[in-house]
């Protein structure tokens, strides 16, 4: 079980609990604004972009090469950017805070 907090662009804070699947799917199921997950999680649409809180980067790790290639062309991206379809929920993610990019 992991508690994951999303901060939307409207400054809403939503904390959700999940046990499996991707962080993107958890966000979409719970209607977190700004996370669309159009492609269903195969890393082709970049509609699940989040900024990980700097202190939580050791929990999430950095973006993979294909993910970085997607993010590289996003004007909003920085070193804390991840596509959350590529974040698998596990105990290791407990407590992470993600700011929705869109």
């Amino acid at each position: 079980m992991a508690k994951i907090t999303f901060i939307t662009s409207a400054n809403e804070t939503i904390t959700l609990e999940g046990t499996e699947g991707s962080v993107m799917a958890l966000a979409v199921e719970n209607g977190v604004r700004g996370i669309d997950g159009d492609c269903g999680g195969v890393c082709s649409c970049a509609t699940c972009h989040v900024h990980v809180a700097p202190d939580d980067m050791d929990k999430t790790g950095v973006a993979s090469e294909i993910e970085s290639d997607m993010l590289e062309l996003d004007d909003n991206a920085d070193e804390y950017s991840r596509l959350c379809c590529q974040l698998e929920i596990s105990d290791a993610l407990d407590g992470v805070v993600l700011t929705v990019a869109k």
């Binding site: 159009d38 492609c39 269903g40 195969v42 890393c43 082709s44 649409c45 294909i66 290639d69 997607m70 062309l73």
Partner: peptide, 24 residues
């Protein structure tokens, strides 16, 4: 079930397909 699939079948960037949600 290709897991990582950064295809550009719906285009890419600003002009990506507007009708993609409908098509999907």
């Amino acid at each position: 079930d290709r897991k990582i699939n950064p295809h550009v079948g719906f285009g890419f960037s600003h002009h990506n397909c507007l009708g993609a949600s409908h098509a999907r």
